[in-house]
Each structure stands twice: as structure tokens, then as C-alpha cells.
Design a protein around this nucleic acid. Sequence first.
DNA 1: ATTCATGATTGGTT
DNA 2: AACCAATCATGAAT
Length: 215
Amino acid sequence: ACDEFTGHVINLLREQSRSRPISPAEIELMVGIIRRKFRAIETQLKQSTCEAVMILRSRFLDARRKRRNFSKEATEVLNEYFYSHLANPYPSEEAKEELAKKCGITVSQVSNWFGNKRIRYKKNIVKAQEEANMYAAATAAAAAAASSSTSGPGQSASVDEHSVGYGHSGYDYDESMGLQRAVPQLSCSTDHEAWMAGGITPSSMDEPDRKRSKL
DNA sequence: ATTCATGATTGGTT
DNA sequence: AACCAATCATGAAT
């Protein structure tokens, strides 16, 4: 391109040389100027595009470290699935795809979410996963609505009256267990049946458990 | 400015 | 390969 342009300039100068004497030295000088200018522009262009690429890369690939909360609806859907499969909260690949589509996120995000949810659920069995009852009630209501035809007062349970004091005073193991079982589980369990095996109260509170994660 | 909540990443296990 | 556990990093709430 540079050569092409200099060629044009040379032609122009030759044309002008008819009306005005132009020395070959002058032409050489012109060519030199053009060459330098082209080099400068070239490197500058290279630099700026390189910068742009770097910026774009950090925008896109580093988007991983950027965390954007999921929409309320998405978490709603995910929680609904989680709590309605509490006995075996391991969605199949297909189910993951379904959830992903429904939530507008990727399958790996769904997997991440379930991973986080499982572990974080397990960490506070003791302290109210009242959420469970919320969603259980919701799905139960839906189910009840489906079968609420002839038989009169067969209505759903209420939500509800466990005033687990907030002021973490009592050890309410029983209640937590109750909560777990209170959930309707149509579990056609496959594998991880024992995902909450035995140990309820792993190393629960007290002591140097200065971890984060409350709720 | 701190603290809590939460999605993503990492390292190790099965 | 999927999972768990710990940790990181950011968004939102205080």
C-alpha cells in the first residue's frame, strides 16, 4: 500500500514537472517523507489494535471473574427444582439443559449453582432452611390445585408457624429433620441417594469455625 | 467502610 | 467426569 501510494505521488510530481521544474532529489525527499509517515501510522495502528484486543479479551474472558447475580426468576426456578428434588438434588444433563434454557444461563452455571446450593444447604441444616418449606408449599399448592376437585376440605398445609427464634438459642435438630421430611419427595432416586448421609451436624457451630456463610 | 450473599474458580477425591 | 470443599471476588445491604 505504501509503495502504491508513493507511486501515485511520483506520477503526480512528474506531471507537475511539466509546468514547474522538479529535481529528482525533491522526489526522493518526498518519498522519504511518505515512507516515514507510513511506518509511523503502521506502528501506531498496530499498537492501538493490540490494545483494543487486550481490552476485549479482558472484557469477555475475564467475564468469569465478574459475577452478575442471576435474575429473581432464574433463582426461583432453580430453587424450585432443588427443593422439589431435595432427596436427590442432582439434575441430569438433560435437566440441566432444561433449567439452563429456562433461566437464561449456561449448563455449567446450572452445575455451579447446584454445587453451591448443595454445599451451602448442607451447612445450615440446623438453622432453618425455611426456604424449603416455602418452595415445598408452593409446589404443594400447585399440586393441590391440580387435585382440588370434588373432595371438599382437603386443602394444603399452611405456611407456617415455626418460630425458630432467630436468636440461635436452641438446638433444634428435630425440627430441622422435620423440615427435611416435610418436603414432598417424588424421588426416583438413582445414585447419590445418601448425599446427606448420616452426619447431620458435622462440626456445627462453636469453635474456630469462623467461616463465612450464615443464613 | 463493613458485612453478608452469591456466582465462579481451584484443588483434591471418588 | 462429576462432585465437594474451600476460597476468591463482586454485588447488595447495613
